[in-house]
Amino acid sequence: TETISAVVIDGYPARALWVKEFTNFFIPEVDKRLAETGNYAMDWQESYGGSIVKPKGVLEGVQLGLGDIGIVTTIFHSSKLPSQGIAAVTPFVSTDARAVAKAVDEIAREFPAMQNEFAKQNQVYLATGVVLDTYQVFSTKEVASVSDLEGFKIAGAGMNLRYLEGIDGAAGVRGGLTDFYNMLQTGLVDAAQLWPEAAATFKISEVAPYMLRADLGAVNSKTITVNADYWKKLPDEVKETLQAVALDYRDHLAGMAMDRAAAAADAYVAAGGTIVEVSAEDRAAWANAMPNIAQEWAKTLNDAGEQGTEMLAAYLGKLEAAGHTGVRDWTQE
């Protein structure tokens, strides 16, 4: 048996869902499958929580060989990994983490753009991870519909701040996940966009007891990648095993995210929160009032010589085939 060492890196701590499932699912699964033939065994060194890189440094860490395998949080890298924004620029389509994970993963395999972007960073794409089912709007004040959000200050992070451009007079306030509780409590903002599981973790129900079920949608934020030089030296059997397990990890993780989301929504209500349903018309009105950020995204990719328009259409087509149709057709100008 030949032993192959692998340094796995992420800047997030070991207790984060995707890291924990890498340890508890991905690694044992690879070990088990390799043990079936007995040709190879892996020697894993797992370094999480900033011991080698910070969350924003995973991409560069894998590129430079500080880690052999890494869990890249793609939302930090709109510049180097523009195509990874695919789910974030298409809100109001699907709240099924599994469907989004599968569709993004297939886009990564069928179009060269995502793999090219990672190849430029000296790494090989392995799998897409979706860890949040959907953004919702959590409000401190009683709200009955989307129009009640007009004039609100609403916290968000990254691309979802642009969703707020569809609401009259709403001002987006940037904040990190860990700041939202305080921002809501002190009235610095009137509402915040986050997903139910995070809302449960940070006890958001205490300060923002109204959840507007806007169903903004699931977003891909993690990608497992392998350093390209390391990958070249791996035996085919190991490569194939990693790729196969990566697919299972993708579905496993998305499934976990969905289970947790359901439990988190229940916990929110049990803790005294009220879930306010949003009508299809209201969602459509919000979506239609937004700038078409999907088109902006496609144009950026087109200009870079990739098939942005085609990827967008294919992605939405895959989701539609899986039964998820958006309230706005992002492929139309």
Binding site: S78, S79, M159, L161, R174
Partner: peptide, 14 residues
């Protein structure tokens, strides 16, 4: 022309 930040919100070159 790598940048940091979020397109459409605020970006600055590296």
């Amino acid at each position: 022309k790598d940048y940091f930040g979020v397109p459409g919100i605020f970006t600055a070159p590296w």
